[in-house]
Structures are given as structure tokens and as C-alpha cells.
């Protein structure tokens, strides 16, 4: 079984009469990128805040690195780098000065930690520009630099590409991916942009109105959402045998007793239908389906769409 870096069970947050997060059970595996996808106000930031102990939990449990945060803050926090909502820095200091402050507070012993972190996000070291003069994209980059400054094992990034231009978004995506693949970091990232999550995440959690609707690996989800030919037949077992023997089709899945999906859409459907009928397998329907991740999102959220 995969080691879980973050595990929540029945995590609930209630503000007054409003349920912001409702019995969410997340499972973030070590060395993987977990994308929390949901519309604005779905509860992503609240979940992240609760994981980081920035807001109290109404009910439910959170374990980070196998431990509860309360009472273990000094052991757990140094292993986490995070950006929640917007990066918080002192506006009258430069980016370097801001990072130096956090490096000192964290007891970062490497003298070049700040320089390296700035290099990683493409910001100049010892620049005279004050943080208040930074563009939104630069602020976001500095936030990421601060999050990675102390070489954490876990990164919690709340909409880290907010305010970045397309090139910046791609850079952050590549950088997060390389952190995960080359350095074995675990990343929990949230976004309301479906394409961003689909390009980056290994695992995905879809949240809507505080409820975690789906938790799945992207691989599984892609499989669910690929283009496919759906056949409704009288006997799927026999049909599958025929597909393998006669057409050498191996990339298919049996959904139930009467439904079968062929993921190679280049096959000759008419020929398949003909052969199946000849072999006494009646074909009720044969259609090309094209479920996208967005369709899937729409389906699981009950019709709401996402960017």
C-alpha cells in the first residue's frame, strides 16, 4: 500500500450555519501530485487551511506524515512548504529581504538557500525592487520560492498559478512536475482550472460545495474519459472473446453484462458489428463516445461546468 503523506477522514468545517467542507476524506500519496479541483468557493482553500492548522476543524481527523498536527507543529511544519490564498510578504522589503527573513525564521542553514530558491522561480537575487512593486506573477513566484526555500518534503499550493501568464503557468507546471519526479516531493495543489490539474496531477479530488465527489488517479480518470466505442451487446463475454480473436483488440473494458467499451476508436465498427451478429451476439447499439474531463466534472457535480 502507498504511504500516505496527508490523510483526512470525515473532515468537516462549519462557519455559522454554512457547511464549508463536508466529511472530506483525502488521501495524498507520497511522491505524487494530488490535484484538488473545484469551482471557486468549493472549499479547497478551507481544506488546505485545515490541513495546515490555520483554521480549526469542526469535526474529522487529519494526519500529516502519519501524525496529527496539533502538538507536532514544530516537527511537521518544517517539512511543509505552502502558499495559501495569496502569498504574504512585507511590501516595503525586497523579494530577497523577504525570503531572508523566512530563511532565518526557519533556521535555514544553507547560505545560498535564498539565491537558489529565487533562481528556481526565475526572480533576480538582490534586486532593489520592493515587493509592493512586484506584479501579481512575480508575487506568486516569490510565494513559490518561499515555499521551497527549506527543501520541504510536502508542498501545499493553493492556486499557485493565479496571476501568472501562460508561459509562467507552464513553467510552474514543469517545475512542480520536476519536483515530484526528480526529487520525490509530494504536492497537494488546488485549482479551479481543469486543464491545469489534468496536465499536472497524478491523483485528483473533485470537490463541489464542500463535498469531495471523486477521488481517483488521473490514469483511471483518463481511462474513464477517453474516446471510446460503446457497444451494447447480448453477451459481453462472448463479444470480448471475439474482439480479441478476430480483431486482436486488447484495449477494451467490460462495463457490465451488456456494455463493452473499445478504446481504440480506429477500428472498423461496421465490421465488428457484422462479425458479432454472425457469431450470434446481438448488437443493440454501437456508438462513438467522447467523454472529456470536463464532461466528467459536469457529470459528477450535477451539471456545473468548470473552466
Amino acid at each position: 500500500m502507498d504511504e500516505l503523506i496527508i490523510e483526512t477522514s470525515d473532515l468537516t468545517k462549519i462557519y455559522g450555519n454554512q457547511i464549508a467542507v463536508n466529511k472530506v476524506s483525502l488521501h495524498v500519496k507520497k511522491g505524487r501530485i494530488y490535484g484538488l479541483l473545484g469551482r471557486n468557493g468549493a472549499g479547497k482553500t478551507t481544506i488546505m487551511k485545515m490541513i495546515l492548522g490555520l483554521t480549526p476543524v469542526t469535526s474529522g481527523k487529519i494526519r500529516v506524515f502519519g501524525q496529527t498536527l496539533r502538538g507536532n507543529e514544530k516537527r511537521i511544519y518544517p517539512r511543509i512548504g505552502a502558499i495559501i490564498e495569496k502569498p504574504g510578504f512585507y511590501p516595503n522589503l525586497t523579494g530577497t529581504e523577504n525570503l531572508e527573513i523566512f530563511a532565518r525564521l526557519r533556521g535555514t542553514s544553507r547560505p545560498d538557500a535564498v539565491k537558489k530558491a529565487l533562481e528556481v522561480v526565475g526572480l533576480p537575487y538582490r534586486d532593489k525592487k520592493l515587493y509592493s512593486q512586484y506584479s501579481m506573477g512575480m508575487k506568486q513566484r516569490l510565494g513559490i520560492a518561499c515555499a521551497i526555500l527549506h527543501d520541504p518534503e510536502l508542498l501545499i499550493l493553493d492556486e499557485p498559478t493565479n496571476g501568472l501568464d501562460p508561459i509562467g503557468i507552464a513553467e510552474v507546471r514543469n517545475f512542480v512536475r520536476s519536483l515530484c519526479e526528480e526529487r520525490g516531493k509530494t504536492v497537494l495543489i488546488s485549482s479551479h482550472i481543469l486543464s491545469e490539474i489534468s496536465m499536472l496531477a497524478d491523483d485528483i479530488g473533485i470537490i463541489n460545495s464542500g463535498v469531495l465527489l471523486v477521488e481517483s488517479s488521473m490514469e483511471e480518470l483518463r481511462k474513464k474519459n477517453r474516446r471510446f466505442i460503446q457497444l451494447t451487446v447480448s453477451d459481453t463475454a462472448k463479444a470480448a472473446l471475439l474482439l480479441e480473436r478476430k480483431f486482436h483488440i486488447m484495449d477494451y473494458s467490460i462495463m457490465d453484462d451488456h456494455t463493452l467499451r473499445i478504446y481504440d476508436t480506429s477500428v472498423n465498427t461496421a465490421e465488428i458489428n457484422r462479425v458479432l451478429v454472425l457469431e450470434d451476439v446481438s448488437v443493440t447499439s454501437s456508438e462513438l463516445c467522447n467523454d472529456t474531463l470536463e464532461d466528467y466534472f459536469r457529470k459528477v457535480t450535477g451539471g456545473e461546468s468548470i473552466a
Binding site: R75, G107, S109, V120, D151, R183
Partner: peptide, 15 residues
Amino acid sequence: MIPSKIISERSREGR
């Protein structure tokens, strides 16, 4: 990226 573990918990607490 910063390659090594750079946290010194004890020194951080005292300071």
C-alpha cells in the same frame, strides 16, 4: 532546487 536538508530545529527554537 535546494538539495540538502536545511532545518535546524534546535537553533530555531532558541532564537
